[in-house]
Write a protein that binds this DNA or RNA. Sequence first.
RNA 1: GCGGUCAUAAUCUAGUGGUUAGGAUCCAAGCUUCCCAAGCUUGUAACCCGGGUUCGAAUCCCGGUGGCCGCACCA
Length: 559
Amino acid sequence: MVCMPDIYDKILSLGKRRGIIYPSYEIYGGKTGFFDYGPLGSLLKHNLEEAWRSLYIIKEGCMEVVTPVVTPFEILKASGHVDKFLDVIFTCQKCSSSFKAPDILNKEVTLPEAGEAIKKGITCPECDGQLTAEEVHLMFETSIGPTKKQPAFLRPETAQGIFIDFYNLYRFFRQKLPFGIVQVGKGFRNEVSPRQGIIRLREFSMAEAEIFFDPSHKDHPRFSQVKHEQLHILPAGKKDIKTSLQEAIKNKIIGNQILAYYLAITQKFIISAGIDAQKIRFRQHASTEMAHYANECWDAEIFTQRFGWIECVGIADRSAHDLQSHMNATDADLTAFHRFDHPHKEKKKLVKVKMDELGPRYKDKAGFIKKQLESMSPPKSGDITVVLDGKSLVIDPSCYDIVEEEVSLEGQHFIPHVIEPSHGIDRILYCILEHNYQEVEKEGEMYTLLSLPYKIAPIPVGVFPLINKDGLPQVAYDIEQSLRQQGFLAFYDDSGSIGRRYARMDEIGTPFCITIDHQTLTDDTVTIRDRDTTQQERIKKANVKAYLDKKFFSSEKRF
RNA sequence: GCGGUCAUAAUCUAGUGGUUAGGAUCCAAGCUUCCCAAGCUUGUAACCCGGGUUCGAAUCCCGGUGGCCGCACCA
């Protein structure tokens, strides 16, 4: 296909030229699926992640944790990743082609089953050669310990670290639901053959939130604030529609309010981060494509020129899957406790053990017998038998009383459910660049501008002397330093014409440029230029900080 | 993984076997410059890697690596 460089190429080119992104390991020829963030890219990514934290931690009240990347085998075994992130493939001995086993056998198979199929005479569909079966992981394998190696993986998602800590976190939140935990960090997937450049990475950054709640209360307290939000949604197997969240809930298109609430704030977040509101849709996963841990999942998809709709945020109802899995695998209690409004009282017959009789008679077995007696409901009449060392044993009635007591049940334990909004930071970042990349014609020349939201822009303000004499550079330099001391990453530049300096700043999305001219020397005023309008205002030097504070705080695209 | 296609400086590119690989942009130094990529001078900087054919290879052949497209895979 012959094509002009599309916007993806332009962004990669700009990114490389201006220190936003570089292909990793470039001087060694590069490695597919890995990208470096350069100086400005790091600032950009940091700003995006901070904006996300500002939303989830400050506004939504979640708390952040940091857990390891290296994850022992058994955790991902319990969570289902070891079994589900595994492909069984056939490799031909003769022509070395590889095939996914299910493609050839038309069903999911285990490795031994694939081996059986070979014994039964399955051969290479290309050349009829002898096949071997093997498993390939989509997780990066590693091991813990230099000598006695324990198998481990680099995490495929940050979420598991949160689930593992549930017991501690529930106590931190003083045993009250709902609460949310977030984590921002790296995840890894050893893609077979990553394409799509920065869109499909083997090592990527994600920002995940796990919202724990009582499944009998799937209402969200702030749902009413978002219920009129309009979303472009694409329900599984249906046509896409524009609808309000309220309608979507009413028509049972979205399963519950909590899920719907996070769809709404996801949309608000990505728009405020600079995504074009017209290029967002929420697509529901069909049951066949859902990850093993989810029972309802919506992807926020963002439209890009080269790749079309790409999944940038996955919002999944993970139900009790993960906590249940880790409970099954360990003895940990990962339940929450729901206190009834009024204790449930009921009369109950109980076995009361008399230890002064039982103890001397059964010695060291007495404790074990006591446990059994107390946990059983007493028979209406006759002897009570317990099982000791595999044998039935009749317990003498003198060892216990049967009493009727009123017991009060204060509440019950349950496994919290989880809604998970999971953001692909790198993908969102690319989409932000694409949606804010503008080429305008300026006096016959192509002029490049990144119209980034103020808080995302890597450099918030440039400071220039109009010309390099009469002491203007020193004044500009002092202002730059002063802004830096006050928390603004100001950038001093005195090279080239003033227009070129504005252009350089526009190209990396710097919202404001301060210029020092001769008037500054007489009345302490400076000009401050707006990136989007190119209009200038003249303000007092002393008011620069306040001016910027106000602009950055009242920006439409703030968080 | 299979097939197609491509690979020249930070970026975009010219270069059909023959001098010192050409241009533009960017970048840097200097001059100039009272507000939007102006101009002048100077400078840094490239043939993806490995073999082969040839007197001679950026150019032709083979292999590898990487990008892109299609299929497959993944969500």
